[in-house]
Simulated assay, not measured.
Amino acid sequence: MDQKLTSLTAVVERSDARLRSPEAEVQIWPTGFPILDESIGGGMRAGALNVLAGPQGQGKSTMALQMCRNAAAAGCSAVMFSFELEAEVLLQRLISLEAGLMFGTSAPPISQIREAFDGKGGVGGLPERLLETAGSMGLDALMSIGKYSDRLVIHRSTSAHTDMAAINENAKEVYADTGQPPLIVVDYLQKVKPFDRTMSEEQQITLITQQLKDLAIDFASPVLALSSADRDGLNPGQRMRARHLKGSTALAYEPDIVMIMNTKADIVNRDALVYDINGLERMREWTVVTLEKNRQGATGLDIEFRKKFMQGRFDIDGSIVSERLVEERLDN
């Protein structure tokens, strides 16, 4: 990061030179969800900190992994610092996700993919066992992943060892190996090892949030940080909002984009269901992503995506929520 004084004249000259170069366009990493990309200016931008949050079980890790996959499939590089799941588990989800994208509802569920990794399904290596447990669709999905697998890197992270210095060094290594700045995903922010454990939890999260923003700027990369809720946000009678994030002051100020996930059935106004007794159950199949902060466009947009969790993914074709949503979650 350039920390020296720069005159406005120098900035004009530098911008002019950049725009005249073959790499004139600002680099953007697509999320792969068309309506979301359209809403945030084409995708996640270089130097931007993006936060994805939601109550437990919303599919934050699922959506983040799918975004990593989509960025890598589009020719970008990506690195996921996974504090939650082992690399093999993420690979299982990717194979299931890929099969779902390729073959739709007929694709094998993630449970069948897992059987191959558990050593079931005859003999041989992964291709042979996938063919046995998940059929040709599972094998085709593995082959498809091979087209971008060199650009998608997993780091098994732990709260005991993975601090911001480790994230910085490993992201630098991915940059060197792939020849391009990577999308940096942290799953999740509250598990990054703090620099100083004598700090309060809020101070630790504030510092890590600021450091993630600096990391995005230093690498000219987007950072996607997953975030958990405070106690109020975990209350079953509460619709999660940005104010419910741990370290909420920093998480409201530092990020360029804040996305909050909630199950649609939990936050829809019950007036919309007066004449539709089965509507509530159908809405449990949908997640609403609310753009609570968006420096690239409109805020307050509520976008719904259908859950395809048996295949470890979301349907990429989302839409703006048409029903009226409540400010606070209602009890069933």
Rank of each mutant, 00 (worst) to 15 (best):
V26P: 12
K147Y: 12
S228Q: 15
P109G: 07
G119L: 05
E132F: 07
S39E: 03
V89M: 09
S96C: 10
D230P: 08
E169I: 12
G59E: 00
T299K: 01
M44F: 12
Q3A: 13
S7R: 03
L90T: 09
I257K: 08
Q203D: 08
L142D: 10
D256V: 09
V26C: 13
V79M: 08
A99Q: 00
P30T: 03
V123D: 14
V326Y: 04
R284Q: 14
A272N: 02
K60W: 04
Q66D: 00
E285C: 07
F81P: 09
D271A: 12
E328V: 05
V186M: 14
L85G: 00
K307S: 12
M240I: 08
S39K: 05
H244A: 04
K213A: 13
G47A: 11
F117R: 05
G279D: 06
H155V: 14
G43W: 04
Q56I: 13
F103P: 03
H244K: 06
L291T: 05
E323Y: 02
T263A: 10
M102Y: 06
D256Q: 06
V186N: 12
R151G: 01
F33Q: 03
L126D: 07
A17C: 10
Q238F: 05
C68S: 11
G54D: 08
I320R: 01
T299D: 04
L152H: 01
M44V: 07
Q56T: 15
T162R: 10
V12H: 09
D315N: 10
S159E: 14
G43M: 05
G59C: 00
S15E: 15
I40T: 06
S149L: 12
I267G: 04
A74D: 08
T9A: 15
D214K: 07
E304P: 12
S228N: 15
A73S: 01
K193L: 12
V288T: 07
S77H: 03
R45I: 08
E323C: 09
I303Q: 00
T62C: 11
E202Y: 03
I320N: 04
A250Q: 02
A298G: 00
L8C: 13
T263M: 11
E304Q: 14
I260L: 07
L131Q: 15
G138N: 02
A46S: 14
A225C: 01
E38P: 00
G279N: 00
Q58I: 14
N235L: 04
A24F: 12
R324M: 03
Y253H: 11
M283N: 06
W29C: 07
I208W: 11
R20L: 14
P30Q: 11
D2S: 13
I205G: 04
R93H: 05
R329Q: 01
E84M: 07
I260D: 06
L97Q: 13
C68T: 09
F219L: 01
V258A: 06
M310R: 14
T198W: 08
G138P: 08
T178K: 13
G54M: 00
A160P: 09
Q203I: 01
Q311H: 15
L52G: 01
A10S: 15
M137R: 15
